[in-house]
Amino acid sequence: MASLKALKIRIGSVKSTQKITKAMKMVAAAKLRRAQEAAMAGRPYAERLEAVMASLASKVTVSENSPKLLAGTGKDQVHLLVVATSERGLAGAFNTNIVRAARKKAEELEAQGKTVRFYLAGKKGRVLRRFYPTSVIADHELGQHKTLAFAQAREVADDLIARFERGEFDVAHLFFARFQSALVQIPTGQQIIPVAVPAGAVSTANDGGAAVEYEPDEEAILAELLPRNVAIQIFRAMQENAASEQGSRMTAMDNATRNAGDMIKRLSIQYNRARQAAITTELVEIISGAEAL
Protein backbone atom coordinates (compact mmCIF):
# COMPACT_ATOMS: atom_id res chain seq x y z
CA MET A 1 0.00 0.00 0.00
CA ALA A 2 1.41 3.31 -1.06
CA SER A 3 1.88 5.86 1.64
CA LEU A 4 -0.46 8.83 1.93
CA LYS A 5 2.25 11.20 0.74
CA ALA A 6 3.11 9.08 -2.30
CA LEU A 7 -0.58 8.95 -3.26
CA LYS A 8 -0.93 12.67 -2.92
CA ILE A 9 2.06 13.29 -5.17
CA ARG A 10 0.73 10.81 -7.69
CA ILE A 11 -2.65 12.55 -7.83
CA GLY A 12 -0.91 15.88 -8.32
CA SER A 13 1.16 14.60 -11.21
CA VAL A 14 -1.81 13.01 -12.96
CA LYS A 15 -3.69 16.26 -12.55
CA SER A 16 -0.99 18.27 -14.26
CA THR A 17 -0.79 15.71 -17.07
CA GLN A 18 -4.52 16.09 -17.51
CA LYS A 19 -4.12 19.84 -17.79
CA ILE A 20 -1.63 19.37 -20.61
CA THR A 21 -3.73 16.87 -22.54
CA LYS A 22 -6.77 19.08 -22.14
CA ALA A 23 -4.90 22.06 -23.52
CA MET A 24 -3.55 20.00 -26.42
CA LYS A 25 -7.03 18.82 -27.22
CA MET A 26 -8.35 22.35 -27.39
CA VAL A 27 -5.45 23.55 -29.52
CA ALA A 28 -5.97 20.60 -31.87
CA ALA A 29 -9.68 21.41 -32.13
CA ALA A 30 -8.92 24.99 -33.14
CA LYS A 31 -6.27 23.90 -35.63
CA LEU A 32 -8.55 21.23 -37.01
CA ARG A 33 -11.10 23.82 -38.02
CA ARG A 34 -8.48 25.83 -39.83
CA ALA A 35 -7.03 22.77 -41.56
CA GLN A 36 -10.49 21.68 -42.62
CA GLU A 37 -11.25 25.08 -44.05
CA ALA A 38 -7.98 25.02 -45.98
CA ALA A 39 -8.80 21.59 -47.38
CA MET A 40 -12.23 22.82 -48.45
CA ALA A 41 -10.75 25.92 -50.08
CA GLY A 42 -8.42 23.78 -52.16
CA ARG A 43 -11.19 21.63 -53.52
CA PRO A 44 -12.40 23.81 -56.44
CA TYR A 45 -8.94 23.93 -57.99
CA ALA A 46 -8.40 20.20 -57.74
CA GLU A 47 -11.85 19.46 -59.15
CA ARG A 48 -11.36 21.74 -62.14
CA LEU A 49 -7.89 20.46 -62.83
CA GLU A 50 -9.20 16.92 -62.76
CA ALA A 51 -11.97 17.77 -65.23
CA VAL A 52 -9.51 19.44 -67.57
CA MET A 53 -7.05 16.55 -67.29
CA ALA A 54 -9.77 14.06 -68.11
CA SER A 55 -10.99 15.97 -71.15
CA LEU A 56 -7.46 16.46 -72.44
CA ALA A 57 -6.34 12.91 -71.83
CA SER A 58 -9.31 11.60 -73.76
CA LYS A 59 -8.20 13.64 -76.78
CA VAL A 60 -4.56 12.68 -76.71
CA THR A 61 -3.59 9.14 -77.57
CA VAL A 62 -0.87 7.57 -75.49
CA SER A 63 2.06 6.69 -77.70
CA GLU A 64 5.80 6.23 -77.31
CA ASN A 65 6.55 9.90 -77.63
CA SER A 66 3.89 11.12 -75.21
CA PRO A 67 5.21 12.58 -71.99
CA LYS A 68 6.72 10.01 -69.67
CA LEU A 69 4.59 11.20 -66.78
CA LEU A 70 1.55 9.95 -68.67
CA ALA A 71 2.89 6.91 -70.49
CA GLY A 72 5.32 5.70 -67.84
CA THR A 73 8.85 4.46 -68.40
CA GLY A 74 7.68 1.26 -69.98
CA LYS A 75 8.95 -0.68 -66.99
CA ASP A 76 7.38 -1.69 -63.73
CA GLN A 77 10.36 -2.64 -61.63
CA VAL A 78 11.25 0.08 -59.16
CA HIS A 79 8.38 1.37 -57.05
CA LEU A 80 8.73 4.50 -55.01
CA LEU A 81 6.51 4.90 -51.99
CA VAL A 82 6.04 8.52 -50.99
CA VAL A 83 5.03 8.50 -47.35
CA ALA A 84 3.49 11.74 -46.14
CA THR A 85 3.36 11.98 -42.36
CA SER A 86 3.20 14.74 -39.82
CA GLU A 87 6.07 16.56 -38.19
CA ARG A 88 4.87 15.94 -34.66
CA GLY A 89 3.78 12.98 -32.65
CA LEU A 90 1.17 12.57 -29.92
CA ALA A 91 -1.56 12.24 -32.50
CA GLY A 92 -2.87 8.81 -31.67
CA ALA A 93 -2.28 6.18 -34.31
CA PHE A 94 -2.19 8.74 -37.13
CA ASN A 95 1.42 8.29 -38.24
CA THR A 96 1.52 4.60 -37.33
CA ASN A 97 -1.44 3.90 -39.60
CA ILE A 98 0.11 5.64 -42.59
CA VAL A 99 3.43 3.89 -42.08
CA ARG A 100 1.66 0.57 -41.67
CA ALA A 101 -0.24 1.06 -44.94
CA ALA A 102 3.04 1.85 -46.70
CA ARG A 103 4.77 -1.20 -45.23
CA LYS A 104 1.94 -3.44 -46.29
CA LYS A 105 2.22 -2.19 -49.86
CA ALA A 106 6.01 -2.58 -49.71
CA GLU A 107 5.71 -6.19 -48.62
CA GLU A 108 3.19 -6.87 -51.37
CA LEU A 109 5.48 -5.37 -53.99
CA GLU A 110 8.52 -7.20 -52.69
CA ALA A 111 6.63 -10.45 -52.81
CA GLN A 112 6.10 -9.75 -56.50
CA GLY A 113 9.84 -9.31 -56.91
CA LYS A 114 9.76 -5.52 -57.31
CA THR A 115 12.28 -3.13 -55.88
CA VAL A 116 10.87 -0.77 -53.29
CA ARG A 117 12.21 2.66 -52.43
CA PHE A 118 10.89 5.15 -49.90
CA TYR A 119 10.54 8.88 -50.06
CA LEU A 120 9.65 10.41 -46.72
CA ALA A 121 7.78 13.67 -46.45
CA GLY A 122 7.44 14.50 -42.77
CA LYS A 123 9.57 13.64 -39.77
CA LYS A 124 7.39 10.90 -38.41
CA GLY A 125 7.91 8.61 -41.36
CA ARG A 126 11.46 8.04 -40.23
CA VAL A 127 10.51 4.90 -38.35
CA LEU A 128 10.56 3.27 -41.78
CA ARG A 129 14.34 3.54 -41.70
CA ARG A 130 14.33 0.89 -39.02
CA PHE A 131 12.63 -1.62 -41.30
CA TYR A 132 14.18 -0.58 -44.59
CA PRO A 133 17.51 1.01 -43.67
CA THR A 134 18.85 1.10 -47.23
CA SER A 135 15.70 1.83 -49.21
CA VAL A 136 14.98 5.35 -48.02
CA ILE A 137 16.21 7.63 -50.78
CA ALA A 138 15.05 10.95 -49.43
CA ASP A 139 13.88 12.49 -46.23
CA HIS A 140 11.98 15.70 -46.68
CA GLU A 141 11.12 17.80 -43.67
CA LEU A 142 8.02 19.92 -43.90
CA GLY A 143 9.11 22.47 -41.32
CA GLN A 144 6.97 24.23 -38.80
CA HIS A 145 4.56 26.28 -40.83
CA LYS A 146 1.29 27.52 -39.53
CA THR A 147 -0.47 26.99 -42.80
CA LEU A 148 0.49 24.76 -45.66
CA ALA A 149 1.74 26.60 -48.69
CA PHE A 150 1.48 25.20 -52.17
CA ALA A 151 5.18 25.94 -52.58
CA GLN A 152 5.99 23.12 -50.14
CA ALA A 153 4.11 20.58 -52.22
CA ARG A 154 5.71 22.00 -55.35
CA GLU A 155 9.15 21.40 -53.88
CA VAL A 156 8.40 17.75 -53.22
CA ALA A 157 6.79 17.34 -56.64
CA ASP A 158 9.72 18.95 -58.48
CA ASP A 159 12.15 16.71 -56.65
CA LEU A 160 10.05 13.65 -57.46
CA ILE A 161 9.75 14.54 -61.13
CA ALA A 162 13.48 15.20 -61.41
CA ARG A 163 14.19 11.77 -59.93
CA PHE A 164 11.65 10.22 -62.26
CA GLU A 165 13.30 11.81 -65.27
CA ARG A 166 16.65 10.44 -64.11
CA GLY A 167 15.07 7.02 -64.07
CA GLU A 168 15.37 6.39 -60.35
CA PHE A 169 11.95 4.77 -60.26
CA ASP A 170 9.17 3.64 -62.57
CA VAL A 171 6.05 3.98 -60.48
CA ALA A 172 5.29 6.23 -57.51
CA HIS A 173 2.63 5.73 -54.89
CA LEU A 174 1.56 8.33 -52.38
CA PHE A 175 0.54 7.44 -48.83
CA PHE A 176 -1.44 9.73 -46.56
CA ALA A 177 -4.50 9.71 -44.31
CA ARG A 178 -7.73 10.81 -45.90
CA PHE A 179 -9.75 12.95 -43.56
CA GLN A 180 -13.29 11.78 -42.98
CA SER A 181 -14.10 13.14 -39.55
CA ALA A 182 -12.33 13.95 -36.32
CA LEU A 183 -12.85 10.32 -35.37
CA VAL A 184 -12.12 8.62 -38.66
CA GLN A 185 -9.03 9.02 -40.80
CA ILE A 186 -8.44 6.50 -43.52
CA PRO A 187 -4.85 5.67 -44.46
CA THR A 188 -4.82 5.76 -48.23
CA GLY A 189 -2.37 4.84 -50.95
CA GLN A 190 -2.68 6.00 -54.52
CA GLN A 191 -0.57 5.96 -57.63
CA ILE A 192 0.69 9.39 -58.68
CA ILE A 193 3.30 8.60 -61.34
CA PRO A 194 2.57 7.75 -64.08
CA VAL A 195 -0.58 9.78 -63.89
CA ALA A 196 -3.59 7.54 -63.64
CA VAL A 197 -6.05 9.00 -66.08
CA PRO A 198 -9.57 8.60 -64.77
CA ALA A 199 -10.83 5.87 -67.05
CA GLY A 200 -14.20 6.38 -68.60
CA ALA A 201 -14.25 9.90 -67.26
CA VAL A 202 -14.49 11.31 -70.75
CA SER A 203 -15.44 14.77 -69.74
CA THR A 204 -18.73 16.22 -70.76
CA ALA A 205 -17.83 19.61 -69.36
CA ASN A 206 -16.71 20.97 -72.70
CA ASP A 207 -18.96 19.08 -75.01
CA GLY A 208 -21.31 21.95 -75.44
CA GLY A 209 -21.27 21.19 -79.16
CA ALA A 210 -18.66 23.83 -79.88
CA ALA A 211 -15.11 22.78 -80.65
CA VAL A 212 -12.61 23.96 -78.08
CA GLU A 213 -9.63 25.86 -79.34
CA TYR A 214 -6.32 24.92 -77.76
CA GLU A 215 -3.48 27.28 -77.36
CA PRO A 216 -0.73 26.18 -78.08
CA ASP A 217 -2.13 22.61 -78.62
CA GLU A 218 -3.43 19.63 -76.65
CA GLU A 219 -0.04 17.95 -76.24
CA ALA A 220 1.71 21.10 -75.06
CA ILE A 221 -1.00 21.88 -72.54
CA LEU A 222 -1.00 18.32 -71.29
CA ALA A 223 2.78 18.33 -70.96
CA GLU A 224 2.50 21.40 -68.78
CA LEU A 225 -0.40 20.07 -66.83
CA LEU A 226 1.10 16.72 -65.85
CA PRO A 227 3.79 17.98 -63.45
CA ARG A 228 1.27 20.40 -62.04
CA ASN A 229 -1.10 17.54 -61.43
CA VAL A 230 1.54 15.69 -59.42
CA ALA A 231 2.11 18.77 -57.28
CA ILE A 232 -1.61 19.18 -56.73
CA GLN A 233 -2.05 15.60 -55.66
CA ILE A 234 0.77 15.97 -53.16
CA PHE A 235 -0.67 19.25 -51.94
CA ARG A 236 -4.07 17.68 -51.46
CA ALA A 237 -2.51 14.78 -49.58
CA MET A 238 -0.73 17.25 -47.32
CA GLN A 239 -3.94 19.13 -46.68
CA GLU A 240 -5.85 15.96 -45.92
CA ASN A 241 -2.98 14.92 -43.69
CA ALA A 242 -2.99 18.22 -41.82
CA ALA A 243 -6.69 17.89 -41.07
CA SER A 244 -6.36 14.20 -40.20
CA GLU A 245 -3.45 14.87 -37.90
CA GLN A 246 -5.35 17.44 -35.88
CA GLY A 247 -8.48 15.29 -35.81
CA SER A 248 -6.51 12.31 -34.65
CA ARG A 249 -4.69 14.36 -32.03
CA MET A 250 -7.95 15.82 -30.76
CA THR A 251 -9.46 12.37 -30.29
CA ALA A 252 -6.31 10.97 -28.72
CA MET A 253 -6.01 13.87 -26.29
CA ASP A 254 -9.69 13.67 -25.42
CA ASN A 255 -9.20 10.02 -24.50
CA ALA A 256 -6.09 10.85 -22.51
CA THR A 257 -7.94 13.57 -20.60
CA ARG A 258 -10.74 11.16 -19.77
CA ASN A 259 -8.31 8.45 -18.71
CA ALA A 260 -6.53 10.91 -16.46
CA GLY A 261 -9.89 11.84 -14.92
CA ASP A 262 -10.66 8.19 -14.19
CA MET A 263 -7.23 7.72 -12.73
CA ILE A 264 -7.62 10.73 -10.46
CA LYS A 265 -10.94 9.40 -9.25
CA ARG A 266 -9.47 6.00 -8.49
CA LEU A 267 -6.43 7.42 -6.75
CA SER A 268 -8.58 9.79 -4.68
CA ILE A 269 -10.68 6.88 -3.42
CA GLN A 270 -7.51 5.00 -2.57
CA TYR A 271 -6.14 8.07 -0.83
CA ASN A 272 -9.31 8.62 1.23
CA ARG A 273 -9.43 4.96 2.23
CA ALA A 274 -5.83 5.03 3.36
CA ARG A 275 -6.48 8.20 5.34
CA GLN A 276 -9.55 6.68 6.98
CA ALA A 277 -7.62 3.51 7.82
CA ALA A 278 -4.91 5.57 9.47
CA ILE A 279 -7.47 7.44 11.57
CA THR A 280 -9.18 4.19 12.60
CA THR A 281 -5.90 2.61 13.62
CA GLU A 282 -5.05 5.64 15.69
CA LEU A 283 -8.46 5.56 17.42
CA VAL A 284 -8.15 1.85 18.18
CA GLU A 285 -4.76 2.49 19.69
CA ILE A 286 -6.05 5.31 21.90
CA ILE A 287 -9.13 3.38 23.06
CA SER A 288 -7.22 0.19 23.81
CA GLY A 289 -4.65 2.28 25.61
CA ALA A 290 -7.35 3.92 27.72
CA GLU A 291 -8.98 0.54 28.49
CA ALA A 292 -5.67 -0.91 29.68
CA LEU A 293 -5.45 1.68 32.42
Partner: peptide
Protein backbone atom coordinates in the same frame (compact mmCIF):
# COMPACT_ATOMS: atom_id res chain seq x y z
CA UNK B 1 -1.66 36.76 -70.33
CA UNK B 2 -1.60 33.65 -72.54
CA UNK B 3 1.59 31.88 -73.57
CA UNK B 4 1.02 32.93 -77.16
CA UNK B 5 -0.01 36.46 -76.34
CA UNK B 6 -2.53 38.32 -74.27
CA UNK B 7 -6.17 37.80 -75.04
CA UNK B 8 -9.29 39.53 -73.86
CA UNK B 9 -12.36 37.54 -72.94
CA UNK B 10 -15.82 39.03 -73.21
CA UNK B 11 -19.16 37.38 -72.70
CA UNK B 12 -19.90 34.75 -75.34
CA UNK B 13 -16.25 34.02 -76.15
CA UNK B 14 -15.63 30.82 -78.12
CA UNK B 15 -14.47 27.84 -76.02
CA UNK B 16 -10.75 28.03 -75.53
CA UNK B 17 -8.06 26.51 -73.43
CA UNK B 18 -4.70 28.12 -73.09
CA UNK B 19 -1.68 27.93 -70.87
Amino acid sequence: PGTEGDFGVLEGHAPLMST
